[in-house]
Nucleic acid binder design. Sequence first.
DNA 1: ATCGATCGTTCCGTATATCAGAACGGGCGC
DNA 2: GCGCCCGTTCTGATATACGGAACGATCGAT
Lengths: 262, 262
Amino acid sequence: MTDATLSTVRNAARLLKAFLTREEELGVSELARRLDLGKSTVHRLLTTLTAEGLVQQDPRTGGYRLGIVMFELGEAVRGHMDLPAAAGSVLAHLREQTGESSQVGVADGDDVVYVDRTESSHSLRLFTEAGRRVPMYCTSSGKVLLAYRPEPQRRAFLDRVPLRPLTPHTITDPGRLLAELAAVRTRGWAEAVNEREIGVASLAAPIRDPAGSVVAAISVGAPITRYRSVPRRRMAQAVVEAGEAVSRRLGWAPESTPTKES
Amino acid sequence: MTDATLSTVRNAARLLKAFLTREEELGVSELARRLDLGKSTVHRLLTTLTAEGLVQQDPRTGGYRLGIVMFELGEAVRGHMDLPAAAGSVLAHLREQTGESSQVGVADGDDVVYVDRTESSHSLRLFTEAGRRVPMYCTSSGKVLLAYRPEPQRRAFLDRVPLRPLTPHTITDPGRLLAELAAVRTRGWAEAVNEREIGVASLAAPIRDPAGSVVAAISVGAPITRYRSVPRRRMAQAVVEAGEAVSRRLGWAPESTPTKES
DNA sequence: ATCGATCGTTCCGTATATCAGAACGGGCGC
DNA sequence: GCGCCCGTTCTGATATACGGAACGATCGAT
């Protein structure tokens, strides 16, 4: 007995998550390799998931892809999130102001998941997809979410998560990251330049719930050359104001701002 | 041995689909009742699914809800659908023209699933959520999708699916439905008034892929009083043109229209 | 404040359902 | 036409998932 966890269901979940790489179609053998399971096991999993509509088989190629029921379930989750409803028009406004892609992200585990976004109208633009998961320690949204966490959680994060250098500019020293997060709290916004991907810069600000807790971040991302051509103050102000606008729509009142974290 | 299907995974899938009722949170006991499983079994399923992020537990109430990974997976499905990208601006235009809610639906099994929509600006309006599943035989979108299916599939549908009367106006006679579907093919659009829900009317037109096959339907829905106040010809023309606009964006060329079905 | 009902959680023995590997048949490319 | 890799099927040994019962906490009504 390994855990109190159902191994079969765990495998089924791992199989579904294999599609988070955004590959549209995967085969039995390929999945068996990635999950380190027998081909027949994977096949049986797929058969079961197909019967339930979570997965579909392409009759042409024989390969498998996620099914529409998966889409329905995802929309059911979205339907219960306040954030997309509150952020929609603000994101649109932010794009008009800045001309760049902007997105709203929430923390899940040690990552940031974007729950809504608008895309820049420039032909050279950041592609941010809703549902995309990125690390916290090297993105502007992630830094905001991390900065406003209670101190013990922030420290636990640094003890738990290795700061892998995704580029030469990624902050890998925990002390330096902590110092930067303190700076984020004092100035009210975060920045990440070249830290997750070379050539990409972003700036983020907090979104608060009625209790004043930071529950999400709103950010603008751009190619670094265009990013540098705009005064940072100007962009920071636009993003911070957008964050406050979304917060107000969530029921937050400005005077209830807490002093520091959480 | 019942099937070649994994009972545990099947139960996990059924558990997830219990949330398609759009209830945000469900408890162990409640789920056990609905799925007709032991409480401990459901609890173990939930523990496993929680560990994988497909489900989250509310630490306050102890109840469970769908997790963010579910949202990610749903977005992964959306990312591979051409339809939302092609339909977005057309839906917006259709709302401007008609002032009513409009949506794009695809067939899945014996139902229609809405994959995209825009909402009316009237305060009294139809609430259509993306990811919502509705029957085919009593909705305008469903009638379109059914009408353009190959004859044998259409007949198989009628043999398989009971035409349950959701309102007194639901068409329950297979012959009458077949006749109506023939009419849909000749005029190029479908209508459903009071058939799924009293007080609701809708009108739909086909969306075609480059081969000319009908792969989706676009529809406008409204409260019946407002619906009646607009000449039907006018609305039908707007919806049909919207369907053609989306079809063109999918790569369909008008002259390639097939004569009748598929 | 107290009782009762119901919640989520844990434990455990039995029985059954799950696993991996090998074998099969079809399709594609060399 | 040959070989490779695909998805699928079968089988027996074994691990694993099941449900009933018991526990502690919580909420609502009395």
